[in-house]
Nucleic acid binder design. Structure first.
Lengths: 191, 191
DNA sequence: ATATAATTTCAGTAATTTCTGAAATTACTA
DNA sequence: TAGTAATTTCAGAAATTACTGAAATTATAT
């Protein structure tokens, strides 16, 4: 596995950004290496390409698997594990969203739910509880919306994204059409 | 500044989650403390409430200011700085989105743009470049969409969120109405 | 100007995270 | 089943990050 200068720049960038993304340098570099390589690579090739220890690669791959960001392959007559990233960048994004949410948001949502079940009498606690309620409601709205968007087909999501701020006009249109013909949704079922 | 057990649970949680969110424990705790306190607090009060050093609080507040997550207040006849979080959770979210994007996404977008300007001849570089193009396009679509949504009034955003997956039906409705009356957008201008 | 209060800076230390090399384990082959 | 290849585990070293206390700086009051 030789890495060209062109690829190296990308790999090093991911290594540096890793800190900010909550992964370590090696994990970032392994991911970047796999991302720009058409063929799946085995641990030995990764070790050699990145010039880090074999054990470090092993741990890095384990973490990437925990993130569900890499796929495992096997070749006939070769018992080594080969790793690759999904080809579809949208699929990668979806995984990233799901996993980051699981690690960075869900625990807080759980904590907030618990806190909101408690009764408080103290005046300052009453304010604190109200603030937690606001935070909880905001996070819940966002995650519910994310859940629903995730069930949509890619075509629809792309359309929505392309629409951008124009969604406002569409929402107005929806209201006015519904006012004129309350049965519009049934009529559209067949589309 | 005394912190109740109820508030402490919230503060400690934020301290622990800080790691995953890219801030240190103290910064997380300071933010949580300010978030659940109705009144703004000065550095001395924070120091005392969290039992950390005064200098640590100073650095933590500096970081929170860099994130634009706290507001600074002054009281007549008191020259200490008082800190608070915005009351509006939507405003907080918006700040968070803007800042995280600036730190975690923009540098990568810049790097990708640079890489995509280069000419490559090597076959493996050609594949790498194509992958970078895919990543670039995805990130750009998302950030552009985010930009546009950010310009919308809160009412519209809330409506869109509430709609959730129902946005698909609305998009279909939009298409069919436009087919029937291509001037619909002009007619709606006045709404 | 001087004194004092408030805050920041920073060098050193503590704590944590990352990485390595060696040993252990697992998986396969002959 | 013994031998070997591949991978994982883990204790300790290296590197990084977080925190403290003391000193320096800044701001305000007398």
């Amino acid at each position: 596995m030789d890495v060209t200068a062109y690829q190296r720049a990308f790999i090093l960038h991911f290594g540096e950004m890793g800190n900010r993304w909550g992964i370590n340098r090696t994990v970032g570099q392994i991911y970047a290496l796999l991302y720009v390589n058409e063929e799946a690579l085995n641990a030995e090739q990764i070790t050699q390409a990145l010039a880090v220890s074999r054990s470090n690669v092993s741990m890095g791959l384990k973490e990437l698997q925990a993130w569900r960001l890499v796929r495992l392959h096997h070749r006939p007559g070769d018992r080594r594990d080969y790793f690759s990233t999904p080809e579809d960048v949208w699929e990668i994004l979806q995984t990233l969203v799901v996993e980051r949410r699981r690690r960075e948001i869900d625990p807080t949502l759980t904590m907030l739910r618990g806190a909101l079940l408690e009764e408080v009498s103290d005046e300052s606690d009453r304010y604190a509880k109200q603030r937690m309620q606001e935070m909880h409601d905001l996070i819940e709205s966002l995650t519910q919306w994310l859940d629903e968007v995730q069930t949509l087909d890619r075509q629809t999501v792309l359309q929505l994204m392309k629409l951008g701020g124009g969604v406002k006009r569409l929402l107005m249109l929806g209201r006015s059409v519904r006012r004129a013909d309350p049965d519009i949704d049934n009529e559209l079922e067949g589309l």
